[in-house]
Structure formats: structure tokens, C-alpha cells
């Protein structure tokens, strides 16, 4: 038999408690190396669409809020086009789409100011409801966790991804709750009661 000569993906390891040194040194207080941290905002002021703020925490299985979590977000523009390598064309030039967000060192709260994305097609052509992809790393997390933020005030009923969640009572863990005209709350629970749905993508 011929060998199947694919390489294996490099195994993941935890980001550890000091991830900020590498990824957000300025926010940690290490100035002078980089002029600014990467991923400070996924949009420029002039971006088209509804400007929104999402606030949340990440909690562990003992109910404790993580103060060392780091989250990256990735999203489409208001028309549902991804910046960069979307095969369907160019996105709003004022949408970078990617952000790097850290939990507050004291309170553990994280904040994402962005625009609400448009719907994006699933591989079979059906539309996925508007969502922001999140990737969560921290001390104690061996492989980054992938989840999605959906919005309470959007029609999520026909989303093919949400439709794949067999335990229907868990779908609500992916729906950001509206707390104001342009404000949402999205709390992430790593383990236990109301555990957030994480994907193998």
C-alpha cells in the first residue's frame, strides 16, 4: 500500500495565563515594542450597518469568571461578505472583520464594539443567520474553543447551523440577549449548567 503522505496538524497547547505578553502587550503594560495591539477593532467608524456593542463574561464549571481569557472574533460585513478571501467579492473596506478581545483583568468582562453582520451562505446555499464566530483560548483550555454569537432580534429559525443542534434547549446558549437598542449580552459558560455550545468545525 502507498503511504498516505499528509502531514499531521501541529498539536495545540494551552495559551497559558500570560498570553497577553504575546498577543496584547500594550494592554498588559508592555509598551514600546509594538505601536499598538493587533485587532483593537473589527471596523472603522465609517463601516456600513448597525453599530452594536456586545458585552459578556466567560465562566468556568465552578461558576467563576475567567479573568485571563482571550477571545478572537471573525465576522462578515453588513451585507454578509467576508473581508479578504470571500469568493463572492469585496467586502466593505471599512470592515476588517477580525478582533482580539481580552477579559478585563479585574472584572473578567469582555466587550466587542462592531457592526451587526449580514447573513452568510452555508455550503449548500441555504443562509446561515447573522452570526459572529468566536475562538476562545485561556489557561486550562488545551485547544481553542469555537462558538458563534447569534442575535435575539434576528430570525434564527431557518439557520442550518443552529438546526444541527440536537438538544434544542441548548440553542439559546448561542443567542445574544438584547439589553438596549444597540446592545447585547453574550455570556459564555465553559462547563456545566447552561454550557455554551462549542463546535467541531
Amino acid at each position: 500500500m502507498q503511504p498516505l503522505d499528509y502531514l499531521k496538524e501541529t498539536p495545540s497547547q494551552t495559551a497559558g495565563p500570560f498570553v497577553h505578553i504575546g498577543l496584547t502587550p500594550n494592554k498588559l503594560g508592555i509598551g514600546g515594542v509594538y505601536p499598538q495591539d493587533l485587532g483593537d477593532s473589527p471596523i472603522r467608524e465609517e463601516a456600513k450597518g448597525q453599530q452594536i456593542t456586545i458585552v459578556g463574561t466567560v465562566r468556568d464549571g465552578a461558576g467563576m469568571i475567567l479573568r485571563d481569557a482571550l477571545i478572537e472574533s471573525w465576522q462578515a460585513d453588513a451585507a454578509g461578505i467576508y473581508p479578504g478571501n470571500d469568493p463572492r467579492g469585496a467586502a466593505d473596506p471599512n470592515v476588517g472583520g477580525w478582533a482580539r478581545i481580552i477579559a478585563d483583568f479585574d472584572t473578567g468582562e469582555w466587550v466587542l464594539k462592531t457592526i451587526k453582520p449580514g447573513a452568510v451562505p452555508y455550503p449548500d446555499g441555504r443562509m446561515m443567520a447573522p452570526h459572529i464566530s468566536l475562538w476562545i483560548v485561556a489557561r486550562g483550555i488545551n485547544l481553542g474553543l469555537q462558538t458563534r454569537v447569534h442575535f435575539e432580534d434576528e430570525d434564527n429559525s431557518a439557520c442550518p447551523v443552529l438546526g444541527r443542534i440536537e438538544h434544542r434547549d441548548r440553542v439559546q446558549t448561542l443567542i445574544a440577549k438584547k439589553t438596549g437598542p444597540d446592545n447585547y449580552r453574550f455570556d459564555i459558560v465553559l462547563q456545566g449548567e447552561n454550557e455554551t455550545v462549542f463546535f467541531d468545525i
Binding site: D60, G61, A62, M64, L66, W74, A76, Y82, P83, G84, N85, D86, W98, V120, P121, Y122, P123, M128, H131, S133, A138, R139, G140, I141, N142, L145, Q146, R148, V161, R164, I165, H167, R170, L190, Q191, G192, E195, T196, V197, F198, F199, D200, I201
Partner: peptide, 20 residues
């Protein structure tokens, strides 16, 4: 205390993961 206990929902990549 930081490991999910429920199984991951298997999806396969979509445009949301294929772009970056």
C-alpha cells in the same frame, strides 16, 4: 473546570471558517 462536558457539535467548515 474549563473543559466542556457536553459533546462538541460537529459541523465541518463553512465560509465563516474558510475565510479569515
Amino acid at each position: 473546570t474549563r473543559a466542556p462536558f457536553r459533546p462538541l457539535v460537529a459541523l465541518g467548515s463553512t465560509l465563516s471558517e474558510e475565510t479569515g
